[in-house]
Design a protein around this nucleic acid. Sequence first.
DNA 1: CATCGTATATTCGCAAGCGAGTACTCGTCA
DNA 2: TGACGAGTACTCGCTTGCGAATATACGATG
Lengths: 217, 217
Amino acid sequence: MAGRRRVGNLLALAVLSAVVERPMHPYEMASVLRERGKDRDMNIKWGSLYTVVRNLEKHGLIEAVESVRTGGRPERTIYRITDAGREELVDWVRELISTPEREFFRFEAGLSVMVVLAPDEVMELLGRRLSLLEQEIAAARESLAAFSRELSRMLLIEAEFDLAMREAEAAWVRSLLDELTSGSMPDLELWRKFHETGEIPAEVRDMAERSRTGNQK
Amino acid sequence: MAGRRRVGNLLALAVLSAVVERPMHPYEMASVLRERGKDRDMNIKWGSLYTVVRNLEKHGLIEAVESVRTGGRPERTIYRITDAGREELVDWVRELISTPEREFFRFEAGLSVMVVLAPDEVMELLGRRLSLLEQEIAAARESLAAFSRELSRMLLIEAEFDLAMREAEAAWVRSLLDELTSGSMPDLELWRKFHETGEIPAEVRDMAERSRTGNQK
DNA sequence: CATCGTATATTCGCAAGCGAGTACTCGTCA
DNA sequence: TGACGAGTACTCGCTTGCGAATATACGATG
């Protein structure tokens, strides 16, 4: 999965951002990252931690400093970041911030095959989505407000972004739902017919077949 | 990766949505899906096609009908959807539409570690992102308009969603950039200092350490 | 009719990812 | 004092994902 990154997993970014402050052993990285809520910003699976650390070492981005044994615990290997690692970290962050990447929302996949359901069911499902979204937004807003009282905004910027995206999604769903329920969405009757008749409309499919070429990106 | 889905890869959803119309062999599924632009709605890697098809068969969601040989071409196995497959398809779409799932934007990961860069650099990078986003949006808008001329809106709904999300992102970035350049973002001076001094501020980190608990979800 | 490019159709093998398991330690509460 | 639960620290092994390779057919072109 590397792409241009030698270790592609975002957990590697998190690890680098931890060891850049001081040398640590893997379990400590996990604690630090958890404490800072990084597992909420990235999709971190702790099962991958040791694999990722090993790969980072293999590529010279971090290096083992020493192995200490405290009490009877298993031996812990302490890693520190290398110059190459520091460079990778900075370069990676630059890229993540400066370069928009196509995100594939699971919702989008759902929308793109929604015609397998009846329109009325879709409306109901969208309604459910909207109300769940609203709940989440309320909770997120509240928790953000709570944190803001003791934390600089700059450290909460990701949470603000996340909130903004959810609000945008909710707004979009709301407007789609309006169009569907008010009946102002074109071809809605056609769609409904398919589901009473049974199957997919040759005419529309043909249209689809025809034009699909030369899209952006 | 399955979760509750027996075959977790979204390519499996696409495959099901293709074979629900008529039996096909794998390569034909690929052509059909490509033609319909499904590879733009989901993050499809064609290298996974045969693995996914095999897994779908293994779980009884599709089944082989026959193997035909046309000319000297390699033998093609034709699959049709089963009742279980139809059920899975419908249920999956229901879930995708009704249940919002936390998406992990790569940008968010970047934001969450942006403090490793100097504030002025971040502003520059955000500027670059914004202009790239604007280009993409313009292109997407244009291509959507082109398609709309010959295609029902309902078949372009995903593209509309995608566009809306990008617009929301652009708006958010623009407003962040404004706050940073106008200097209205709090603690900006503190941040700048770190980078002249050299390192991360104990005070702020401590704040961070303290409060992180009981977030939403 | 030799050649070349494009479409057809699939296989292979490595490596990444990660859920689940292991094993030990320490504090505490009865 | 011994049992228990929570935390510490890591390992294992299966599965999935996917880039790259393979091999043949077909039509166009010189």
